[in-house]
Computed example of a mutant assay.
Amino acid sequence: MAAGAPLEAMRHRVRPTRIAVRTVTAARPLALGLAVTSTPTTLETAAPAKPSTAPTTAVAADPAGHAQLFTGARLRSSTDDAAHAQARRAQSMGPDVGLPDPAADTQPAPESVTAVRSAPAVDGR
């Protein structure tokens, strides 16, 4: 019976902790619903913004991203395949700019590619 006393004391300490954890876990959806449905009070008490008297100038967007996309699409296209996705992108971004002619010393693109299984030879060759 002596070993039962510490176990009983531990059981009395664990039970309220379990109840508290389960209560907090059950209250989370209620707290979330309350937070979603409540309106922030800072918007209601905010003062209207004063109009600025300083003239504002419009800042132009950085054209570097557009130029990079256009240059990449144009370099990946050619007049031989004007229906290719990169060629269509280059033509839509710069309709007045022609597609480049394919270089004379380049290899043609493969018509099809087939995967081949390879394994080392038995004698190591």
Results as ranks from 00 to 15, higher is better:
66 H>D: 06
7 L>P: 02
117 R>V: 14
46 A>T: 15
122 V>A: 15
47 A>Y: 01
124 G>W: 05
79 T>R: 00
3 A>P: 01
31 A>Q: 01
83 A>T: 07
22 R>L: 14
102 P>S: 07
3 A>C: 02
7 L>I: 10
88 R>V: 15
123 D>E: 10
99 L>W: 00
45 T>D: 11
31 A>F: 08
121 A>G: 10
118 S>V: 14
60 A>P: 11
54 A>T: 12
1 M>C: 12
101 D>P: 07
26 A>K: 02
92 S>T: 12
76 R>A: 13
59 V>E: 14
124 G>F: 05
104 A>R: 00
125 R>E: 07
117 R>C: 02
59 V>K: 14
38 S>F: 05
107 Q>T: 10
41 T>D: 12
59 V>R: 15
12 H>P: 02
100 P>R: 01
116 V>P: 02
99 L>F: 03
62 D>S: 06
55 P>Y: 03
32 L>Y: 06
29 P>Y: 08
53 T>R: 07
71 T>P: 00
24 V>T: 14
76 R>V: 00
3 A>K: 04
59 V>G: 11
6 P>M: 05
25 T>I: 04
89 R>L: 15
36 V>T: 13
28 R>V: 13
104 A>T: 02
105 D>L: 10
3 A>W: 01
34 L>G: 15
83 A>M: 04
45 T>W: 05
91 Q>W: 01
22 R>A: 14
118 S>C: 12
37 T>W: 02
75 L>V: 01
108 P>R: 06
41 T>A: 14
41 T>R: 03
89 R>Q: 15
30 L>G: 13
99 L>K: 04
55 P>L: 05
53 T>H: 07
104 A>M: 00
40 P>H: 05
47 A>Q: 03
123 D>F: 09
65 G>L: 08
7 L>F: 14
91 Q>C: 04
64 A>V: 14
107 Q>C: 03
23 T>V: 04
102 P>A: 11
43 L>I: 12
31 A>I: 08
54 A>S: 07
84 H>C: 05
55 P>T: 12
74 R>L: 08
39 T>S: 11
71 T>A: 09
110 P>W: 04
90 A>Y: 00
54 A>L: 03
19 I>M: 13
2 A>D: 08
10 M>L: 15
73 A>K: 02
27 A>L: 10
17 T>A: 15
79 T>Y: 00
92 S>A: 15
116 V>H: 10
93 M>Y: 01
3 A>M: 06
33 G>H: 04
6 P>F: 09
26 A>W: 04
1 M>V: 13
108 P>A: 10
53 T>E: 10
68 Q>W: 08
108 P>K: 10
41 T>C: 01
54 A>F: 01
30 L>V: 15
7 L>T: 08
21 V>T: 08
10 M>A: 15
21 V>W: 06
120 P>I: 00
77 S>T: 04
84 H>S: 11
23 T>Y: 07
26 A>V: 06
45 T>H: 08
22 R>I: 03
50 K>H: 00
94 G>E: 14
45 T>A: 07
22 R>D: 15
39 T>D: 07
